[in-house]
Structures are given as structure tokens and as C-alpha cells.
């Protein structure tokens, strides 16, 4: 349902994406791994139009992604995004964060949005935090609210950009288990992550990106357990055995 064909993207003179071709099928979970600065975030940001791309084509359910066209709004309601730094609205409660999109973008009736918002907060284990403002929540709780906010748009797919990288280690698990449940329920997910355990257990496929190109891709277990390319081998060694 998400297709990238020969996507190129430069920031100024620096070419960050050098021809990315990949696709994500419905209900598939794809993990993107790779060193810092390799272009992982840029790929996600191009998919939902936070960045424009220079060449190639990205489409979501057959609709071309063009960040400068009005159609991008419809695409964004179908492909939600979860950020490393949560980006919750600090001036609104957890529940208000979740119902903001349904209420003001989708124009759902208030009662219905609230009922669904509460159900979503319960789904991510935060039923009792509905009236709390994000700054008063832990990082793990904030990220789970952010996931609920993404789900509230009833997206066809969710993009996760290092959703656990800003969390204290003991809070990573609660976020990953919510994501794992989503995957089990059949959500289409693209996840940029350094959590190799999650990638191995949950991902259908893994893409290894380095220097703006896909160096290696394949079934999660084969890429992670028997990497073919020396750069993948080197990267995995450094991630799994940092000392």
C-alpha cells in the first residue's frame, strides 16, 4: 500500500536519499535500521509529506504523495506518524490530544470522538490519565498517548520514527508492547528503530539503509541473523555488541 520508486532527496547540495525503492504491503511490519544520518527519518518524512522529494515517486494506496498539493491532507489522515520526541500538544490533556484530529480534521461529533478517544487511551493502558497534561506524564506514557493520537485518525498505516530512542531504558518495553499489539492486530507499520529484538520478533521485513541507499533487505530473521553485506554485518555487530 506504500510504494517508493527511485526516490531521491537532497538538502542543499547534499544528496540524502539516493534512489530508494521499496514497498510496504497491507498489514506488513517493516523495520528500517541503519546508522545515524543515513536517511531513515527522511524516508518516513517523505512518505507523509513533511519533506518533499526531488525525483522518483512515492504513492500511498495508489495516490501520489505531493507535499505541496492539497491531497497531502487526505494522505496524512491515512498514514499517521509517531515521533521520537512524542510532539504531544502540551497545552491539551491526553484525551484532548487524542481527539484533536477526529474533532477538528475529521469533524466527528464530540460525543463519539470522546468515547473513541477514551477507548484508545484504554487500549494503550492509559485510561486513568485522560485528563492529565503531557508534561506530567512519563516519556513512555507520552509516547503511548502519541500512538493513541495516531490511531484516532483511523489510519491505514503508521510510521514510527525511533519511537523509543528518547525513553529511559525501563520505559521502552511498555511502548514496544503497545506496538507489538498493533502489529498483531494487523496494522501496517513502518518502524525506524534500533531495537533489534523488536525488529527480529515483530517485523516481517527489515531494510538496512546506509548513506541514502538500501544496502540490504529481506525477511527480518535472515537480515538480522545472517546479514549478507559487510556493512550490515558491521552495523549489527556495533549495535548488538557496543563494547
Amino acid at each position: 500500500m506504500i510504494e517508493l520508486r527511485d526516490v531521491h532527496k537532497s538538502f542543499g547540495k547534499v544528496e540524502v536519499l539516493k534512489g530508494i525503492t521499496a514497498s510496504v504491503a497491507k498489514s506488513e511490519v517493516v523495520c528500517i535500521i541503519g546508522p545515524s544520518g543515513s536517511g531513515k527519518s527522511t524516508i518516513l518524512r517523505c512518505i507523509n509529506g513533511l519533506e518533499s522529494y526531488d525525483r522518483g515517486e512515492i504513492s500511498v494506496e495508489g495516490a501520489r504523495v505531493d507535499s505541496n498539493d492539497r491531497s497531502i491532507v487526505a494522505i496524512r489522515t491515512r498514514v499517521s506518524m509517531v515521533f521520537q520526541r512524542f510532539n504531544l500538544f502540551p497545552h491539551r490533556t491526553a484525551l484532548e490530544n487524542v481527539i484533536e484530529g477526529p474533532l477538528y480534521v475529521k469533524k466527528e461529533p464530540r460525543e463519539q470522538a470522546i468515547a473513541r478517544g477514551r477507548a484508545l487511551l484504554a487500549q494503550v493502558g492509559l485510561a486513568d490519565k485522560a485528563e492529565v497534561h503531557p508534561p506530567k506524564l512519563s516519556g513512555g506514557q507520552q509516547q503511548r498517548v502519541a500512538i493513541a493520537r495516531a490511531l484516532a485518525m483511523q489510519p491505514k498505516a503508521i510510521l514510527f520514527d525511533e519511537p523509543t530512542s528518547a525513553l529511559d531504558p525501563e520505559l521502552v518495553g511498555e511502548v514496544l508492547s503497545v506496538m507489538r499489539k498493533l502489529a498483531d492486530d494487523g496494522m501496517t507499520m513502518v518502524v525506524v528503530t534500533h531495537e533489534m529484538g523488536f525488529a527480529r520478533d515483530v517485523a516481517d521485513r527489515v531494510l538496512f539503509i546506509d548513506g541514502g541507499v538500501i544496502v540490504e533487505q529481506g525477511a527480518a530473521k535472515s537480515v538480522l541473523n545472517q546479514p549478507q553485506h559487510p556493512r550490515t554485518q558491521d552495523f549489527l555487530r556495533r549495535v548488538l555488541h557496543p563494547l
Binding site: N48, G49, L50, V73, A74, R76, T77, S80, M81, F83, R85, N87, L88, F89, P90, H91, E100, G101, Y104, V105, K106, A146, R149, A150, A152, M153
Partner: peptide, 27 residues
């Protein structure tokens, strides 16, 4: 206001004016 706030608003489908009114100006 943090750029991340604006991006979060965009990713739930808010346009420029809605982002201003609901997210940026109140903060």
C-alpha cells in the same frame, strides 16, 4: 514554538490555519 508541534499537527491532517489556531497560537 517547537517545529515538532507543527509537524505533529500536520501529520493528523491539520492545514495551516487550523495548525495556527489550535496548536501554535494557544502556546
Amino acid at each position: 514554538i517547537d517545529k515538532g508541534q507543527i509537524e505533529a499537527a500536520q501529520t493528523i491532517g491539520m492545514g495551516w490555519w487550523l495548525t495556527m489556531r489550535r496548536v501554535v497560537l494557544p502556546q
